[in-house]
């Protein structure tokens, strides 16, 4: 076991993945500087500049080239610096990455990983704080995963690299160095599509992912002191997501609170709410609460605190659900 931050757990995973000659890492500044978040620190030295590739500033080119490499039998990992910079590559993602398996009926596939740091909470510059996961979850043919712990960051990244389909790998920016935890050494995977039970509880189910998991966990701890037993589920994967784990939990608790920092309207929470009511409507004892960002641009540093859901907001939603 090693005591690692999320960032270092990702470095460890990349280092292990790069042992396979089919794997390359490419993106802007991933080599010499180790990436803007230093996730690939030291990897160019370890694996060489042909395998840890500093590219021109061109997101569509990065993803399109990675797609070509994948079609030719490699397992490239493309890094986009921030989610707000990933949009130029959407044509590649939608029209090619997500489609090639179907349009060639399995003859050609795109087993690539696109790593995208995302989310608010560190007062970053404009376009550096987006949570646009719902854009990606709406694109057929992709998988979308979001780790929230060092352990899952490593295990999910190795699972993403091993996956035979394209995976959008979202890295919560504010968690990169916020937590340290024991992470097994050597290769291991966390299955894509399986949620993680963060804390068990009986009264309310809180479903979260990414940076919101810690907030939900903190809210649950506070509420436990006042006698409310909150179950927290970390989805870990958005496509496919673990319907069974969520529905089973809500059937027990009868109450649900969904948390994400992305905008509210057509956010991924809406999908979760819709699915819960399909499967567990008659178990519900209160309306399902959503704690989300607003349908606004993420405010800049000085006003960001008005936007990002807090543990207090989650606790308040749980209380409403209990009263519901």
């Amino acid at each position: 076991m090693a005591d690692l931050t999320v960032a270092r757990a990702l470095t460890d995973a990349l280092d292990i993945a790069l042992a396979d000659p089919a794997v390359v890492l490419l993106g802007e500044d991933v080599g010499a500087t180790g990436g803007v978040f230093r996730v690939s620190d030291g990897l160019r030295e370890a694996h060489g500049p042909d395998r840890v590739i500093d590219t021109p500033v061109a997101e569509s080119g990065i993803v399109g080239a990675a797609f070509g490499m994948a079609v030719a039998g490699m397992r490239p990992i493309a890094e986009i610096q921030f989610m707000g910079f990933s949009y130029p590559a959407l044509d590649q993602v939608i029209n090619h990455v997500g489609r090639v398996r179907n349009r060639s009926r399995h003859r050609f596939t795109a087993p690539l990983v696109i790593r995208i740091p995302y989310g608010a909470g560190i007062g970053a510059a404009e376009h550096h704080s987006e949570s646009a996961e719902a854009i990606y979850t709406h694109i057929p043919g992709l998988k979308v995963v979001v780790p929230s712990t060092p352990h899952d960051a490593k295990g999910l990244l190795l699972a993403a690299v091993a996956d035979d389909d394209p995976v959008i790998f979202l890295e919560p920016i504010r968690l990169y160095r916020a937590v340290r935890a024991e992470v097994p050494e050597g290769p291991f995977t966390v299955p894509i599509g399986a949620a993680r039970l963060v804390v068990g509880g009986e009264d309310v189910t809180v479903v979260a992912y990414g940076a919101m998991v810690r907030e939900a966990e903190a809210a649950a701890a506070e509420l436990a002191a006042s006698g409310t037993s909150v179950e927290v589920i970390d989805l870990r994967s958005l496509v496919p997501w673990d319907v069974e784990a969520v529905v089973e939990s809500v059937r027990r608790t009868g109450r649900a609170v969904i948390v994400h920092e992305a905008p509210r309207t057509t956010g991924f929470g809406a999908e979760i709410v819709a699915t819960i009511q399909e499967h567990a409507l008659y178990s519900l004892r209160a309306p399902i609460e959503r704690v989300t960002g607003w349908d606004t641009v993420v405010p800049l540093r000085r006003a960001e605190h008005h936007y990002v859901p807090t543990r207090a907001a989650i606790a308040a939603a749980v209380v409403r659900a209990m009263e519901g």
């Binding site: 080119g61 080239a65 070509g68 079609v71 090619h96």
Partner: peptide
């Protein structure tokens, strides 16, 4: 959109 694929493949 496909021209870059020939770059990735060749690479």
């Amino acid at each position: 959109g496909h021209m870059i694929h020939a770059v990735g493949i060749a690479w």
